Amino acid sequence: IRCIGVSNRDFVEGMSGGTWVDVVLEHGGCVTVMAQDKPTVDIELVTTTVSNMAEVRSYCYEASISDMASDSRCPTQGEAYLDKQSDTQYVCKRTLVDRGWGNGCGLFGKGSLVTCAKFTCSKKMTGKSIQPENLEYRIMLSVHGSQHSGMIVNDTGYETDENRAKVEVTPNSPRAEATLGGFGSLGLDCEPRTGLDFSDLYYLTMNNKHWLVHKEWFHDIPLPWHAGADTGTPHWNNKEALVEFKDAHAKRQTVVVLGSQEGAVHTALAGALEAEMDGAKGKLFSGHLKCRLKMDKLRLKGVSYSLCTAAFTFTKVPAETLHGTVTVEVQYAGTDGPCKIPVQMAVDMQTLTPVGRLITANPVITESTENSKMMLELDPPFGDSYIVIGVGDKKITHHWHRSGSTIGKAFEATVRGAKRMAVLGDTAWDFGSVGGVFNSLGKGIHQIFGAAFKSLFGGMSWFSQILIGTLLVWLGLNTKNGSISLTCLALGGVMIFLSTAVSA
C-alpha cells in the first residue's frame, strides 16, 4: 500500500470489461488503480535517471590570480610587451599612462603600459546536455494484498515479495511487465516523455548541487567559461569578468580578483528545477510519464477462499488518510488461513446495510499462523458509518465519521480527471477507425466523469442509474429551450454510458 502517505494521489477506475487503462505517473504523486474483478494496485514513479550526459560548457565562479607582471614604455618608444601576453592562462590589459620627467621619461606624453596576471579557477559549475534516449524511469508497484503497516513504502525485498514489484522503462524499451506472483502480471506500455523539453534544458552542477536550467539563461551567464570537458589546462574565455584592473600608474597597475560568485548564482537559480546525482547518473524529480496498463493477466487472489471465522482485533486505531479513506490494521487469532476477511461498512448496526467501498479488493489472510496481521483500506461514505470486521458474535466494529460532501468530492474528481486527460493529450485517442474513435470517446468520458459518477451514484443499482439517464434524455427531447435540451441530452447520455461502463 504505497499511496496512503502521498498527498498527491489519483484514483483511476477501469471500465467494466476493459483490459487496459491509461494513467499519468508523476514525481511526488501516486496512482491507485481499481477495476472490477482485479486486485487494487498502487503505482508510483520513484526516480527518473539520466546517463551519458555530455559537458557543454563550464563557468568559473571563484578564481585566484598570481605571478603579476607589468612592462611600460616612454612616449615614442613603441608598445610595451610581455611574453605572458601569448599565454592563455594569463589575463592581460594594455593601456596608456601619462609619462614625463617625473617618472623617468625625457618627453612628456602618453606611454604604453601592459599588465598580466595568471588566472586560476578555484571553483566552477558545469552544464551538461541531456539526450531523451538516455532517460530511465523506475516504477514501483504494490498490490493491496496481505501486507501490514511495516511494509508500507518499503522498497527492500521486492524481489521475493509477490505484493510488490519494480520495473524500469526507457525510450528504447518502453514496454515492461511486472510479475506479482499469485496476482498474475501487469503489463506497462509507457510513452517516455517527461513533459520537459530537454532540447531547451541543461543539467547544471555547482558545488555538489544540481538544477535543470534553460539553455539561453545558461549561455548568457557573465562569467569566465570554457567549452567542452575539462582537459586539465582549460582555456578560459572572458577571464576579465572576475578580474579587475585598478587605476594605472606610470610603471605598474594593481590587479585584484573578485570574490566568489556562488551567492549571486544561487539567487539567479531561484525557482529552477532541482535535481540530484546518483553516482555518474543524474536524478530528476520533475515531469511525468504516461503509461497504458494492460490488466488482462491480472487476477484476484483468494476468490475461492472461505470466510475467516475466528476473532479479529484492531492492532491500531483506524486512521484517516490524506485522501479521506480509512486504513485499518487487524490481527487474526485463527489458524484456518488462508481465508477471506469479512469486512464491510454499514450505516447502522441493526440492518448492516453496506455503504462505501473497499479500496483493498478481496482482502485475505494468507498465513495459517496465529496472530497474522493484515492492513486494508476503505472508502467510507460522508457522515457517520460503522466499520464491521468478522462474522457472528466475534465481529468487531468501529464508529467512523467522514466530513465533507459527495458533491465536493465529485467536483474534485472531475477536475482531476480533466487534468489527466489534458496530460494524456492525443495519445488517449485513436482515429484509425470508426470503432477506435468511439472507443476513445468512451475512454475520455470515463477518465473525466467516472470518479464523479461513482461518488454521486455508486450506491444505486445499474438499472436505477439507466432509468435516471433515460429520464434526462426524455426531458431533453421534450424541452423547447435549446440549451436546457442539449444539457439534459448530454447528461442523460453520459449517465447511461457510465452506468453500463463503470464497474460497481
Rank of each mutant, 00 (worst) to 15 (best):
G436K: 05
G106Q: 01
A361G: 11
Q465G: 02
D87N: 14
N103C: 06
T267G: 02
T315I: 15
D22C: 05
S7R: 00
T369D: 15
S129N: 14
V24M: 11
D197W: 11
G482M: 13
S385K: 10
Y59M: 11
H214W: 10
G417A: 07
E55W: 01
L378F: 13
E79K: 11
A319S: 15
G436V: 01
D10L: 00
T179Y: 04
V31H: 04
D393W: 13
R193E: 04
G100I: 05
G324Q: 11
I466E: 11
K128N: 00
T427N: 04
M34F: 06
F497W: 12
R357A: 02
G436T: 03
T309W: 10
V243T: 11
E26S: 01
I387Q: 05
P224K: 10
I396T: 15
K373E: 13
N154G: 04
G476I: 04
V213I: 12
M151P: 08
G78W: 08
M206I: 14
S440G: 01
A54N: 06
S66N: 08
E13I: 07
I484W: 08
T88D: 04
K123N: 05
L141I: 09
P224L: 10
T353H: 00
V153H: 12
K251M: 02
A227S: 15
W474A: 02
R193H: 11
A54M: 10
D71C: 05
P342N: 09
C3I: 05
V355P: 00
V255S: 00
G127R: 09
R94K: 12
S112H: 04
G17E: 03
V326S: 00
V24Y: 07
L188C: 06
V388H: 14
T315S: 13
G100T: 03
K316G: 01
T500P: 05
V494M: 15
G425A: 14
G228Y: 08
Y81F: 07
K239E: 12
A346T: 11
G228R: 10
S66L: 12
P363V: 01
I445T: 12
G450F: 10
Q36C: 11
C291P: 02
M15D: 04
S455F: 12
P380K: 13
T120L: 13
G263Q: 11
A490C: 11
F449Y: 11
R175F: 09
G111M: 09
V167P: 02
A54H: 04
D430K: 06
V391I: 10
T120H: 14
Q77C: 06
V23E: 03
K394I: 13
T500V: 00
T313N: 00
Q36K: 15
T49N: 03
L424G: 01
S146W: 07
N154E: 14
F453R: 05
G28L: 00
L107T: 02
G182Q: 15
T313H: 03
G100M: 10
E177K: 12
W20T: 02
P338L: 12
W429L: 06
K294W: 08
R164V: 12
Q77Y: 06
M460Y: 13
D189N: 13
T335H: 12
E168D: 15
S129Q: 13
M460S: 06
V21S: 00
T194F: 00
Y158C: 13
L471T: 13
T115S: 15
S51K: 06
R416N: 04
H446P: 10
G195R: 00
W225G: 01
V343W: 10
S185A: 13
L212A: 07
G184D: 06
C74T: 03
D348Y: 02
G279P: 00
R9Y: 07
A333G: 15
A165Q: 11
I139V: 15
N481Y: 09
K123F: 06
C60I: 06
D384L: 07
G111R: 08
M374C: 13
D83C: 00
S461F: 12
K123A: 09
N207W: 03
H235A: 00
S286M: 06
G408Q: 12
A413V: 10
I396Q: 06
P174R: 02
T19G: 04
K110P: 01
G14K: 09
S185Q: 14
S72G: 14
S129M: 14
I341R: 02
